[in-house]
Amino acid sequence: MAAEPRGSNGTVYHVKAGPDGTLLSMKDFSLWYGLAQALFNVSMTVEKGLVTALIGPSGCGKSTLLRAINRMNDLIEGLKCSGKIVLDGTDIYDPSVDVIGLRKLMGMVFQKPNPFPMSIAENVTYPLKVDGIRDKRILKETVEKALKAAALWDEVEDRLNENALSLSGGQQQRLCIARAIAGEPEVLLMDEPCSALDPVATAKIEDLIDELKGRYTIVIVTHNMQQAARVSDNTAFMYLGRLIEYGETSVIFTNPKVDKTMEYVTGRFG
C-alpha cells in the first residue's frame, strides 16, 4: 500500500508500508548540540522488515538522526532534544528507559570498520559477553550463525582465533555487521557502512543488506545515491536538519514530489 502524502511541517510523505507494520515512529523530533539546532521537527516512520535509507548533503543531520535512534548521541555533552521516538509504544527518550537495554535491541555499523583488537570470534561474541553469556556452545553457535549471516564465514572459518585487525577493510566491515547482528537485534543501524570501502567490498555489503532485509529492519545512512536506490525500500531526503521528503525509493528517485529532492537526486547540488 502506498500511503497518501500526509507529512507534517511540510514533509511530503508517501512510504511503502512494511509487511508487519511500523516499528519506529518519530514525532516532531528536534535536537540541539548546545545552542545549535541539528534536527527540526522530524516526523517519520521506520517500517518493520524494510530497508530505510537516509540521504542528503553533508551536515543535513542524517547521521545525527540515525544516532538518535539508539541514543548514541547521549555521549555528547550539552545535548538536548524534544519530540518523541516511539518503539513498541515506548518513547525511547523517556527517563524510565534503560539506554543499555535499548542499545541491545539495535545493532550498529559505523562509517569506518571498527572491530575490537581481539580475535574474530571474540569480536562476534562481544554483545553476548556483555550480557554475561559464558556458555561455550552458545557462543560457538552464535559465531557461526552471525558470520554466515554476514557472508564472512567461508573466508574466516579456519582462523577464528586470529586478530580481527588482520582482516581486510571489507572483511572487517562485514565482521562489524556480524557483531551487530550477533546480539539478535530488532534494528540494524548503518552509518555510511561502505564509505571507507572499495567497489568490490561495497558490492558485497550491498548484497548482504539485501539478504538481511526481512529478518532485520535496516536504517542506512548513505552518501551514495545509487546505493540508496539499489538497496532501500523507502528513502528519506533530508536537508539542513529538516526531513524534506520521505517515500518509496522508486518514487523518490524517479518522480519526487518536492523540487529540492529532484535537484538533489539528479545531482544538481549536494
Partner: peptide, 20 residues
C-alpha cells in the same frame, strides 16, 4: 570509535572501559 562500537553493542560504560 572503539568506545562507540562497544556501547552500540549494549555494553555499559564500565564494561566498555574494562573490556575495550
Amino acid at each position: 570509535s572503539m568506545r562507540e562500537a562497544s556501547l552500540a553493542c549494549g555494553a555499559s560504560k564500565w564494561q566498555t572501559i574494562k573490556n575495550i
